[in-house]
Each structure stands twice: as C-alpha cells, then as structure tokens.
Design a protein around this nucleic acid. Structure first.
Lengths: 211, 211
DNA sequence: TGGTGTGAATGCCTTCACAGCG
DNA sequence: CGCTGTGAAGGCATTCACACCA
C-alpha cells in the first residue's frame, strides 16, 4: 500500500511528533513548521519533513502544518483508534513498576493481566490487577484477547516464559530480560536491556578521558 | 588510537558477547567459534568477527576463540576494571525498581544515591539507600563522585532535573522520561522510552493484518 | 519570503566473498 | 579443511540542495 518502505526509526519518531502535536493543540497553537517541531523534539527540520512525507502531504507551503490535522493524521497512521491488551509476566520490582506505569493507559495499551511463578506473589493485587500463576496464562491470554506480552523475569526463566507466551498466542513481546530470545518468525520481539544501556554509558565515560 | 571508527552498535554488542563468554567460561567451555557465539546471541558469524576485528585479532584460524582470553580482552576493551557511581532521581515505582535492580552491581555500576522532590518520600530507605531531597543533589553528587544520573521522574520535571544534574557535574544521563532533553554538548544522554517501545509494537500489530 | 516536498549525495553499518592461516 | 580477518559491495537512513508553492 505504501509506495516506499518506511524505516522503523521513522515510525518510532512519529510517536514523538504525535506527543508534541497533542501538547501543541492543548496550548491552542494551530500551526507549526517542521523547524519548530524539530527543535522541540531535538530533530532536524529535514528529518521531520521526510518522515511525514512517507505518508502524504500534510503541510502548507510558507506556513507549516496545521496541528489539529497533523494530530488526527498521525493518530490514523499509527493506529491510535485501536486498543491492545497487554500481559506482564514477572511481578518483581520491575514488573510491578510496569503495572503501575501511568504512561500506557493513554496510549491504547491496557494491561489486563499479570503472572508470576512464585506462589507467594500469586493472588496479590497490584494496581487493581490480580497476579495469577503462570500456569493460568494460556487460558487468560485467550479469554482476555491479549496480544502483547511483557517479559520481566530473570534471564534464566525468560526463554521458557517466551515459549509459553508464544504457544498461548501472543504476537508481540517486549523483553526486559538480558538474553537473546528465540521465537518463531511471526512473533515480533523488542528488547529493552537496562544494564546494557547503562554499561554503554560507562564505556563512554571510560573512553572520554583518553581523547 | 583506534585506526577505524567503531560503530556504537558494535560497542553495545560487545557487552552481549562478554555476558555470553562469561557464561561459557563458567561452563568450562574453552573454545568457541564466531558461528556458535553468533547463534547464542542471535547474530551472524560475520557480525561477531567484524565487531571483534575492530580491536585486534583474538581468534585462532580453524579453531575459534579462546573463551578465557576473549573474556579478559572484552573486559579490558569495555573498561570493566573501572567502577562508576550512579544516582537515581525520582523514587516512584520505576525509580525504586531501578534501585532494587540486581543487574547493575555486577557490572561496575554502583547506585550510590537517590533523590526525590516529594518530602513524603525523603529519608525513606530503599534497598539500603536513603532517598534524599533533590536540593541535596549537587553536594552529594560531588561528595560521592557520581558521574551517571538516571532520570525517572514525570515528563514535566525531567528538563529541570537534567539541568540540575548537569550543573552538579554529571557527565552521562539515562533518561526514562518521555521527552527530548536538551543538555550541553559534553553530556552524553541516552533515552529509554518505555511507552514508545510498546507503541511501536502496537503499530506493528495494527499493520500486520493488512498484509 | 518563508515555508514544504523530494531526488541525489552522503555516511554508516551490515553482509558478502574470499584470501590466508593453523 | 575449518575458521578467522578483512576489503568490497550493498542496503538503509539521514542530510543536502533545490524546485516549487502560497
């Protein structure tokens, strides 16, 4: 349908533009140029125009983009009319932080279930969500039509959890465990590796001095 | 010193190789080929060799890499002999999860301090670390020689926190707030945008059906 | 004049292809 | 023969340069 292939990084930035444009409409600002939008998002004006250009011509020469129109176009492009159900596996500190994270609800993402293998955590309530045994996952995932799974368990258990999620019908995984998971082709996986991010920063520090 | 510029993505992968190699030495496996190492990390054999090739020739033709030597070389390259002190700003769910995160200690990263503006949280203890008022940050950061800051506060406060950290002498920031922060050239910033990661997955789901 | 839209140029990173080595 | 090391090719994403438009 799209004439040219859209880079994944473009998609990621569109969410940033959308956030900013929502803020602008709240402030009753009706027009914005690519340069201004770029400044607010720490991106170049060309980058902004190129990204938007993949999906049509929303701008007005000499004036810029209408924020209200841009907002609704971006929402349409990014599928913001749809809502997706999410399950969190692992009710440790990180898992519970994710259950409490306010950033998801506003973005078409509903955390519907939480699982853990630890019997001591099962049936505890976190933020209105009851933690269930991992054994219940296949049933609950199907019943509640959950399509996104978040893995927040230790590295050793992560592959097993991934296997269970996949066979329960999960289509996307956000993985916080510091291991490379193997999943079937049709499952999309995204890694968030917190210690690696920090380690990369420390590498930067270690090498800064030498230059 | 390095003849060719090393891609940042290579650095990031070196940490993955190191993890794997540590695991291999624990299992008393003394030799590994680039193909095997690639399989364990979901990367290609060429990628592994190219990455290592930036830093020298550690391999043995026909047999592979000695895990013990590779381990110590990687540790040296990545500055694992050094230890860096870290401060967390924001003692909400995410901040507290980071304070409790076990993955940092083993990696030359010591969380030495935590700050919050909320007077109700100040002086509470989390995982042996006392939460201090943000106003104490400049003093504590200097006293404890902290060079990495983690921002885990709401979007609206993030830029202000960043400014304070920078003027207190912080050199690297790991930012969990969903905004683009502006910092001086010499400060390295790395964003971890959790809702964006999840949103990108939901975009993938929304578009999968159309193909 | 002040802005958009976009082919062309560039730069970065990954993959290919293969020479060389134990 | 199996595996490393690496120049060359290729692919993807960003930036440049400029035609075009209100």
């Amino acid at each position: 349908m799209n004439p040219k292939k859209v880079p994944e990084s473009t998609i990621s930035r569109l969410f940033v533009y959308l956030r900013e444009v929502i803020e602008l409409t709240r402030m009753s600002i009706n027009t914005i140029s690519s340069a201004e939008l770029g400044e607010r998002t720490n991106l170049s004006d060309t980058q902004v125009r190129k990204d938007l250009g993949y999906f049509g011509q929303f701008g007005v020469s000499g004036s810029g983009y209408n924020t209200h129109e841009l907002k609704s176009q971006l929402e349409k492009i990014l599928g913001k009319d749809k809502v997706w159900n999410v399950a969190v596996v692992g009710a440790g500190h990180l898992g519970r932080a994710l259950l409490a994270y306010p950033g998801f609800q506003n973005h078409g993402l509903n955390i519907m279930a939480a699982f853990d293998i630890d019997a001591k955590k099962v049936d505890k309530q976190v933020n209105d969500i009851a933690i269930k045994s991992l054994d219940d996952a296949p049933r609950v995932i199907k019943e509640k039509n959950i399509s996104i799974g978040i893995i927040a368990v230790p590295a050793k258990e992560a592959q097993d959890v991934a296997n269970r999620l996949v066979s329960a019908g999960i289509e996307c995984i956000l993985n916080f465990a510091p291991v490379s998971l193997t999943v079937p082709e049709h499952v999309k996986i995204k890694d968030v590796d917190l210690s690696r991010e920090l380690e990369t920063l420390s590498y930067f520090l270690a090498n800064k001095k030498n230059n």
